[in-house]
Design a protein around this nucleic acid. Structure first.
Length: 464
RNA sequence: GGCGCGAUAGCAAAGCGGUUAUGCUCUGGAUUGCAAAUCCAGCUAGUCCGGUUCGACUCCGGAUCGCGCCUCCA
């Protein structure tokens, strides 16, 4: 039985779909004005794992992951670089897709872009004005009248009265109320714009998600997710827009992924302490990065550091070392392992608010039994195929084990050189020339190569 | 100031009102020409102070410390 922690009620709830067997899940993607950082990767991987798991359990999932491709920051960045805004966003969307592929993130069912939904955005704004929830200001902007919506603040647990006169709210004579937020922004000369009943302009930040969610999922969603920092104001404002316009509730389960930290502080663009995904992939194997990001629960903060990546690699090596003997074994069909204690424990863990850490623990239990079995035995083969099946639900084990184990950032010595030395050492061992064999191993160790001799006289190696 | 989250062993990180989490590291053993890998065994836990309970790492209250949000953020 699937349980999900709902930000709205601040507790775990038994999941009940709107339509039996179906799930609509809308996840806020990024605003594309720069390369993605690994905080983005954390959120994307969390929902990629969730989507893979839900599908594996037979849910008919409509997974929508949007792109916000028009926004003040995009315009500013394009101006700085002397580039057209849509050329800029295309560049970073392409880069994002590249990063996602590298990390094994599957494409969502739909990847809508804000600029493709200008019509629906205008429709919602018009409805909000008709219903008295929004007003056109004299400068051509349209604002949401926050005090007109009763539930405002419920998601982020804020008292609407206490939002007044906050330090970061700008005094603005255009708005009726300082708390009102913009739905439609009048264009300044030279800015990208679309025609609207209020003149040339562009959507405000939050309205695009209300529009895309409605068009891609319908008026009501099962799950809406995103980074924890989107809870307020972004998701709060989405609720206000969608519920006021549609006249009924918007989302049943709100899910928020905790921030990724660097040195104990949140990594974010505003703090400038961020690493892009490409920075990180230059130093670490993509699957190590992915594995690191699923070793803690999605609602727990996770600290990014050299040490944690090194540790993640060591943990992942244990799996790959076990799978090395079973390259030819295909991943089991889930129906074939339905009776397995490991699969049952894995599913229990994932059904409990997607507890990847506990799911991994069951996989380690499985590996221990696999390693205890006689290599190549029927039981071992079966366990290996089961392990691969569980791994694919988490999106890991995408690489050839030997290739993974022999990969490394600082390749001081080529694979060919290693293979030559290994061959020489095997001969030396046959000749009982252990002095030479040990000398070769010492040389390899100095190059961060670890030698593993098998019983049958063969030798495998991996990079440290 | 308001709202919320957290504190677990050398490190990382989970569940659980009583019974081995798990991974990495470390120690001993098996195995190995010696190693590595693997297996077996073991070592270090629950910030502090109260309360509830037969029993608390787990529930409640308080303190301390850390973190997030409070109109750029995933």
């Amino acid at each position: 039985m699937l349980q999900i922690y709902n930000t709205l009620t601040r507790q775990k709830e038994i999941f009940k779909p709107i339509h039996p067997g179906k799930i609509s899940m809308y996840v806020c993607g990024i605003t594309v004005y720069d390369y993605c950082h690994i905080g983005h990767a954390r959120t994307s991987i969390a929902f990629d794992v969730i989507a893979r798991f839900l599908r594996s359990q037979g849910w008919d999932l409509n997974f929508v992951h949007n792109i916000t491709d028009i926004d003040d920051k995009i315009i500013r960045r394009a101006n700085e670089l002397g580039e057209k805004f849509d050329a800029l966003t295309k560049r970073f969307i392409d880069a994002m897709h590249e990063d996602e592929r590298a990390l094994g993130i599957l494409p969502p069912s739909i990847e809508p872009r804000a600029t493709e939904f200008i019509g629906p955005i205008i429709e919602i704004v018009e409805t909000l004005i008709q219903k008295g929830h929004a007003y056109a200001a004299k400068n051509g902007d349209v604002y949401y009248r926050v005090t007109s919506f009763d539930g405002y603040g419920n998601l982020s647990n804020k008292n609407i009265d206490e939002l007044l006169a906050g330090a970061r709210i700008e005094v603005d004579e255009i708005k009726e109320d300082a708390r009102d937020f913009v739905l439609w922004k009048a264009a300044k000369p030279g800015e990208p714009s679309w025609p609207s009943p209020w003149g040339e302009g562009r959507p405000g930040w939050h309205i695009e998600c209300s529009a895309m969610a409605k068009k891609c999922c319908g008026d009501q969603l099962d799950i809406h997710g995103g980074g924890a920092d989107l809870q307020f104001p972004h998701h709060e404002n989405e609720i206000a827009q969608s519920e006021a316009a549609n006249g009924h509730s918007y989302v049943n389960y709100w899910m928020h992924v905790a921030p990724l930290r660097v040195d104990g502080e949140k990594m974010s663009k505003s703090l400038g302490n961020f690493f892009t995904i490409r920075d990180v992939l230059e130093k670490y194997h993509p699957e190590v990065v992915r594995f690191f990001l699923i070793t803690s629960h999605y609602r727990s903060p996770i600290n990014y550091s050299e040490d944690s990546l090194v540790e993640a690699r060591a943990g992942l090596e244990r799996f790959y070392a076990a799978l090395r003997e079973y390259v030819a074994v295909p991943a089991a069909e889930l129906s074939a392992i339905s009776g397995s204690q490991y699969y049952a424990a894995f599913v229990d863990a994932m059904n409990d608010d997607f507890n990847t850490r506990v799911a991994l623990a069951t996989m380690y239990d499985l590996v221990r039994e696999l390693n205890s079995c006689e290599a190549g035995s029927e039981k071992a083969t079966q366990l290996a195929s089961e392990l691969k099946a569980l791994g694919s639900i988490l999106g890991i084990f995408r690489f050839d084990p030997t290739e993974f184990l022999q990969s490394g950032a600082g390749d001081q010595i080529s694979a060919d050189e290693v293979n030559a030395l290994v061959a020489e050492r095997i001969q030396a061992k046959k000749d009982k020339n252990y002095a030479r064999a040990d000398e070769i191993r010492k040389q390899l160790t100095a190059n961060k190569i670890v030698i593993e001799d098998a019983k049958d006289g063969t030798t495998q190696w991996r990079r440290e």
